[in-house]
Design a protein around this nucleic acid. Sequence first.
DNA 1: CTAATTCAGGAACGATTGTTCCGTATTTTT
DNA 2: AAAAATACGGAACAATCGTTCCTGAATTAG
Lengths: 193, 193
Amino acid sequence: MARTKEFNEEQVLDKAIEIFWHKGYNGTSAQDLVTHLGLSRSSLYDTFGDKQKLFSMALKRYQKQGQDYVKNLLEEAVDIKAALTVIFKQAVLESLEDRITKGCFMVNSSVELAMHDEEIAKIVNDNRQTMQAVFLRAVKKGQEAGQISVQQNARTLARFIFNNYTGIRVLARSGEKDKQVYDDILKALFSLF
Amino acid sequence: MARTKEFNEEQVLDKAIEIFWHKGYNGTSAQDLVTHLGLSRSSLYDTFGDKQKLFSMALKRYQKQGQDYVKNLLEEAVDIKAALTVIFKQAVLESLEDRITKGCFMVNSSVELAMHDEEIAKIVNDNRQTMQAVFLRAVKKGQEAGQISVQQNARTLARFIFNNYTGIRVLARSGEKDKQVYDDILKALFSLF
DNA sequence: CTAATTCAGGAACGATTGTTCCGTATTTTT
DNA sequence: AAAAATACGGAACAATCGTTCCTGAATTAG
């Protein structure tokens, strides 16, 4: 019947994540997208609708990837504290390695768009809820297993973990490359567990 | 010799802070500025150069205001822990009260511009250094006075305080209005002091 | 082969971007 | 009162914005 697409939609979305992550929504032009996604203007609009729709598709995909990673790690973890360490060490590693420091696509989008775009606000809030729920379940499990201190209640710790994760991602975005800074934050944070 | 300006430069800068804070750099158009600053296009460019210069002047002014506030509070504080409580409670109050949630102008600018604009990067990094130094001095004083635990060293705590401050401001920017969330974060944070 | 479909490329759209310039009004100093 | 200086409002600028549309080539199914 018809010609098959020459591009893979998911691969294009992954590229879109990279661009929007790096430059933000307002900082990315349609021309940027055409140039770096490797498809024509017409295909872009035919396939994804418009810039805003492409952005939210990219953000949703990024969200799923991040959540899957954290969920899997925490749900299958024997030692919760160790698993949390892995997650945070990984975030620090990314922050230090990135030549172009992109921070976290979700955090960046929260700051840039959440208050101006309802759809993005929905994604961001959903992400926060989900992530805090994931952390909450993990902390509870860790406390029951005696791996995490019960000095603070689980919900408090879950929110606190999320808050420090956010802080670290902003630090990365603003270009901090001193490992000692991140290690200090992690040290203080984990002293609560 | 010449006519006097009909506007007060500092008042205009304060208005510019509000606009850029709310909409970000890329989200604010020249027309937005003309409309809300209450001066003409020509006066705007004659007085401030261009959009980028106006932005960095506004950000610098915001930085000075914020730093003065925190510095004064901490340097003249008898009880450091109490002073830190005031600072964080104030941040939470602003987050809950703001009908239009603006977060923190400095954090917003870090995320949006630091990696794309050297001048902004300089301001942001200078701010981080300065704020951490202010917190460091305060923590040291608090530890010497026996008001703050010496379990963690002062520099670690200073960085940790800053990180959680950042996190809270992002939370505010993304529209969180549940006081309990902020209180949990504060509770966990202050349990370290 | 034919018909149907969708690709890629690029011209073109009106709207908006940041910025400049000009003519006029206004105020201050001599 | 005259002259110098500068603010003012608004027209106008080229450039870029996101988006649409058209053309022709490519590929598939019948």
